[in-house]
Design a protein around this nucleic acid. Structure first.
Lengths: 196, 196
DNA sequence: CGTCGAAACGGACCGCGGTCCGCTTCTATT
DNA sequence: AATAGAAGCGGACCGCGGTCCGTTTCGACG
């Protein structure tokens, strides 16, 4: 038994080879997604490309959805960076309303861009918890800056909901609504909610 | 060759045995979903229960998602009946705002009740096209009655979006938000949108 | 270093959704 | 009633996601 007491229950340190494999897998997956498209990426393929056994994939990333979520997370993180410290109006420096509007447009485009990946990542992935709550927090913050009062968490959720892929997909692929109209509709919604 | 000219291109009449099988399959699926829960219903099981070959399932209902969508559609239709001709405030007879609020609450509960089935029916099913557009149309109508002006299709979509299962699931299962709060949040959203 | 327990590995294996194709059944027509 | 061919049928078959478990590798400690 080691001498130190487990003050905080750390999430288990992960062995060196494990970390190496995780990275190899993620890299392989990213490469395959880019070259062949999401639909053609099977777990066996990724395993082969990464030079590991299939079992390893599933130990590191729970499921196919989990792996896809991890791949998606790559670009998601970059996007979050833009929001937090990128150039205005998306990043800080612009008036709150401008930022909010820019945020919505950006999210819209981003979601549409990664549509396939988002679908493959599935809903119940760890993606939701992270991505959704980041977006929600940011919108809540901007609503606060705008002086909006009320249940901000609910309000933020309401603003974010129409930007979810389920909704967007229906509008774009089934109803063939133009992007500009969706954007305009969202702007309108925002203005009504903030009471401008 | 028959004598009559195909004035309208009818969707092919469906043979007697085909119709019989479709019904048997649907009934079997419904029964199994009720007794064992959605997760335990495999296509082979349904086929056995209905006394047909597996191939038949896939010819009638495209995919597992399609079959689940058909099962779901059963209760969906009943619900639409309530909205169109049921007792107020959900049905006709109450003031538009009351109807709209009742509509939202009802949809919320219904979605939550059929959560599993909705998940199993998947997004890209024919379910969207029908169910979503019915709801949208109804909300649009009520917004009209309330004298709201603007892009009603977008507005209706915005009001419906927070009631989608993707959003609800996140709120209920991940963030553990109470139902009452979600309802109150939606009511608030509605009031802001209609400008009351 | 050598040792030892835990963690990680890999690939054979399984179940399920989905397809395919040779056989059967229906129905329109005479 | 006979017939022809289209529509439907069924179950063997396939590929993929996911699991399991005997073997290998790591790294903490003496």
């Amino acid at each position: 038994m080691t001498h130190l007491l487990p003050l905080a229950d750390e999430p288990a340190p992960e062995r060196a080879d494990a970390a190496r494999n995780r990275e190899a897998i993620l890299a392989a997956a990213l490469r395959l997604v880019r070259t062949r498209g999401v639909g053609c990426v099977t777990m066996d393929t990724v395993a082969a490309e990464a030079g590991v056994g299939k079992g390893t994939l599933f130990r590191r990333f729970e499921s196919r959805e989990g792996l896809m979520a991890a791949v998606l997370n790559e670009s998601e993180t970059a996007w979050q960076g833009q929001v937090i410290s990128g150039p205005p109006p998306l990043g800080p420096g612009a008036p709150p309303l401008d930022r909010l509007l820019a945020f919505g447009h950006s999210r819209l485009r981003t979601n549409l861009t990664h549509a396939e990946l988002i679908a493959a990542a599935g809903r119940p992935g760890a993606r939701s918890a992270a991505a959704v709550s980041f977006a929600n927090m940011h919108v809540r913050y901007l609503l606060g800056e705008l002086g909006v009062t009320g249940d901000l968490l609910m309000l933020a959720t309401a603003l974010l909901a129409p930007l979810e892929m389920v909704v967007l997909d229906q509008q774009v692929n089934a109803e063939h609504i133009a992007l500009e109209r969706i954007e305009a509709g969202w702007d309108d919604l925002v203005r009504r909610v903030v009471g401008a």
